[in-house]
Design a protein around this nucleic acid. Structure first.
Lengths: 340, 340
DNA sequence: TTGAAAGCGCTAACAT
DNA sequence: ATGTTAGCGCTTTCAA
């Protein structure tokens, strides 16, 4: 059966399509009696307007595109849940574009960030590359960046944490406990995605070391793909060397988890022989009592989507760069180093 | 600046809009030379067709709707990742509808499953209620159900596991080890979402008990919202009673995790004093060495999306009900009961 | 307050 | 092989 269109309703109600449109969309230019009659017919015929036609006519897509990495990390999920929570009450559809490879990233950025595709775009955890900045800055639709800062994009709304500060905070905690041999286990530095959080946390780690007059020891640094097992292997090696670190700052709780496993297998006791601090405050960190840096993941997604919706309502509202607060959560994996 | 339309390209290339359309869409009805000229202009002007207009003209939405529960469980994520993996190479956009409340469920089902909204729909982990069956059966677009079976919907493609069989498999494993006092800890039975997997696994549990001539003991049964902590509390109570079970079948690995925590706090040693078996084979199960029932989560999402895409290509292809195999994975949380 | 008509940007049937 | 035209279903301007 052919779908019922606005014409069917118009005919049935004995009015013109224009009037039906007005009646449905709450225009004041319809008498109450006609409106009632029209709405009745709408009910009877189970009419509901064709969204595509509506979009074309309105010149709006009523759609928000969300661009994010493949959902392989708990932190992505939490952010996405925040996004969904904020979007659900709105009239917008959400189309998800998951970036799996760096070639994809190029084409997705180009194809998706266009007025004909979406009324607004949310970019999550994909920090813009320098070559993309101009394109993003000149886009003709609102863009909000979550966990994806770029210093030159101040005209865009951004929600972020200061990962450098986070790195410093974590490292300082270890330093204040008295550690001098502090390692870092994180993700690969030169990823095509240019994830900046790993870079920045590492940077903060270096700053804190320097500040405390502690030398950086290359054998206390290791990187690999993100993951528990990867971190475990790295930790295994790092802890097996002659003069191992007494504390490790892990890029994420997932890494910290892997490090704990390695320590356990090597009979390195935590926190006596080794302190570990993670990042994110995932469920696993709470479970394993991992000292960590909390960041508001759900909130970041929610807030980012809110900002986008506001921008859609009020296009002239100036963009904000909203820094979210992080927090040291001390649990049971950090303690002063053993005295030799 | 106004977006560049097919007319701009036509004018610039000195041809008609129709020809531009043909050139772009690979119609054989264009000479190679004109095609080249048109494509050149397309490049120069950075033209890219307006999707909304295209959709309206084609009478297709080029969109697939995915309806799923709020992403609160690891199993949902895995399935969704499978869906994304299968969809990415296609031309379709994916719009996500996350169901958070049961009222929402009603309206989402009604609003989304319409030809004007999407060319196809994927429903994940939301088993149809009897009242919805007729609506789904008569929908005018392809629907695929993943982890959401209904016996009367044989005209729809379905991807599922046999949760009853899973429940039996898990329980039998405990029985074969010699357990006679076997508990079940799961989700709330009467949820508005009608999640059937909990129901079915419990059912399988009862069947296996009966088969072995073991009585069902009500104090060995407990339910609550899904979650680690909820399961932990339930287990705490169940294990604190006078004659506690010697084994527990947990609805999911997440529950099993909580049960392990409770056991630990109560100094009930695993598997000596208590055997635990979970379900899903999540990462945490591997980590905690939990015996569990594996089910192909990623694959289910991927396969479901594949079936939907196939149906879109070949509308007359008959629907299949594809049962996926599950598997007992024996780790270290199950063993014979201690002899009294 | 309502109807008629134009137009959103594209595709496809029809004509040449 | 190409141009012309109608039409997808809606909204909105213009007239009445």
């Amino acid at each position: 059966m052919a779908p019922v269109t606005i014409r069917d309703v118009a005919r049935e109600a004995g009015v013109s399509p224009g009037t039906v449109s007005r009646a449905i969309n709450g225009s004041p230019l319809v008498s109450e009696s006609t409106r009632q009659r029209v709405l009745q017919v709408v009910q009877d015929l189970q009419y509901s307007p064709n969204l595509t036609a509506r979009r074309l006519s309105l010149g709006k897509t009523l759609t928000i595109s969300v661009i994010l990495p493949f959902l392989t990390r708990p932190s992505y999920i939490e952010r996405l849940n925040g996004v969904i929570a904020a979007l659900t009450p709105s009239q917008y559809d959400m189309v998800i574009h998951s970036v799996q490879t760096s070639e994809q990233r190029q084409s997705i950025f180009q194809d998706i960030i266009r007025r004909e595709r979406a009324d607004g775009v949310l970019i999550i955890s994909l920090p813009p590359m320098d070559s993309e900045v101009e394109f993003l800055a000149n886009a003709d639709i609102p863009i909000v960046l979550i966990d994806a800062i770029h210093p030159e994009l101040n005209d865009l709304n951004q929600v972020f944490i200061d990962d450098i500060e986070g790195g410093e905070m974590a490292t300082r905690h270890l330093i204040e406990l008295g550690h001098k041999k502090i390692g870092y286990i994180g993700d690969i530095f030169d990823t095509p995605f240019r994830f900046s959080s790993n870079r920045d946390r590492y940077h903060g780690y270096r700053i804190a070391l320097e500040e405390a007059g502690l030398p950086f020891n290359e054998t206390y640094y290791a990187e690999d793909e993100h993951g528990r097992l990867e971190a475990k292997h790295l930790a295994y090696q790092m802890l097996s060397q002659d003069d191992p670190p007494t504390a490790i700052f892990a890029y994420s709780d997932t890494n910290a988890w892997g490090i704990m496993e390695a320590a356990q297998e090597l009979s390195v006791s935590i926190p006596e022989d080794l302190s570990i601090i993670g990042f994110d405050n995932l469920e696993i960190a709470e479970y394993l009592k991992i000292t960590t840096i909390y960041q508001p993941l759900f909130d970041s997604g929610q807030r980012g989507m809110q900002l986008l919706l506001e921008k859609l309502e009020q296009p002239h509202k100036p963009a904000v760069q909203e820094k979210q607060e992080i927090q040291l959560i001390i649990r049971e994996t950090t303690a002063p180093p053993k005295q030799d």
